[in-house]
Amino acid sequence: MFLINCPYCGERDQSEFSCGGEAHIIRPKQPTELSDDEWAEYLFMRKNIKGVQFERWNHAHGCRKWFNMVRDTTNDKIHAIYKMGEKPPE
């Protein structure tokens, strides 16, 4: 059970949050101009990394804000948390 440092509320129990999958997948600005394959790439393809992964999280039972998290999926270490729109760390 993680202890997650919500950038708006501070440290809270994982049970207050929900994970929204891989981060930094940008919705295409002009979907109609994409081929089926390009659209499928956006719609379906996720990396599901074993190791350091960039994820979207939502403080669902708190401030309801979305933010990003860098988490190592092998040991659940949270390396960084940053707000939506902020630059991801290296």
Binding site: G20, R27, R56, N58, A60, R64, K65, W66, M84, G85
Partner: peptide
């Protein structure tokens, strides 16, 4: 509501 919030906060801020 959460789906709409998601789009508002992350795709169309």
């Amino acid at each position: 509501l959460s789906k709409l919030e998601d789009y508002l906060q992350t795709e169309w801020p």
